[in-house]
């Protein structure tokens, strides 16, 4: 399966420092599954009541003022925000929630480091643009709902098919998204390298390998 174009409606969040607790509150981290977080995305803003794991959209009191509860943004594929998106905790559940809702890309001027890494493991593109570029996109978004097309191979963002913004991103990371690759499988191809490293390392730093369970 390959996936080189991301296209769709853009939901806008005019806010800095949206942390992972906002993206998905702690309550839902109690799940031991890797899917099924879409209904809990931005839970604190999206609903007026307090939710619990297992509740669905139908059980909830929806906040009609919140962008993702309005058409056409309820089908948004791309999220446009400001600075430092995904700061805070390491919870991959934040990316799982974005993905399960239907988001395939998040555009911001910077990201929390751990969140940024987590995105590529789950086929969500974190796209960094400059503050000026973000500003100009926000200006456009004020008038009408926007639709973007992101070309992962060509590394270009097309806005309503007239404005084109080129972007930079590590090709190896993007290839994970395009080809839906699993890092564990890739790294295990280098098993012998890790074994070799370990043999030498055991000799030079023996204390690392001492079991420390008898106090």
């Amino acid at each position: 399966m390959s996936n080189t174009i991301i296209q769709g409606i853009v939901a806008i969040f005019d806010r800095d420092n949206i942390d992972t607790d906002q993206i998905i509150p702690t309550e839902y981290l109690k799940s031991i599954k890797k899917f099924g977080f879409g209904d809990y995305l931005f839970d604190g803003w999206r609903y007026l009541d307090q939710g619990q794991l297992g509740m669905t959209l139908d059980d909830r009191e929806v906040n009609k003022d919140f962008i993702l509860n309005q058409k056409p943004y309820d089908e948004a594929k791309i999220l446009l925000t400001r600075n430092n998106f995904g700061c805070g905790s390491s919870r991959e559940h934040a990316v799982w929630a974005l993905r399960d809702f239907g988001f395939q890309a998040v555009i911001a001027s910077s990201f929390g480091d751990i969140f940024y890494n987590n995105c590529f493991k789950n086929s969500v593109l974190p796209l960094k643009l400059t503050k000026q570029e973000i500003n100009s996109l926000f200006m456009l978004a004020n008038d009408n709902p926007l639709s973007f097309e992101i070309d992962l191979k060509g590394k270009e963002l097309k806005v309503n098919s007239d404005l084109i913004i080129p972007f930079k991103v590590d090709i190896n990371l993007v290839n994970r998204i395009i080809h839906n690759l699993d890092d564990v499988d890739i790294t295990l191809q280098d098993k012998a390298l890790i074994k070799d490293f370990e043999i030498n390392y055991k000799v030079s730093r023996p204390w690392i390998f001492i079991e420390n369970n008898k106090r």
Binding site: S90, N118, V184, I186, L188, I194
Partner: peptide
């Protein structure tokens, strides 16, 4: 020492390594 996501937890369990970019 650093925090990692769950996919990386699996990666470290399986390979004793982390695939990362230098800070």
């Amino acid at each position: 020492a650093m925090g990692i996501g769950t996919s990386e937890v699996e990666h470290v369990l399986a390979t004793q390594c982390l695939k990362i970019t230098k800070l």
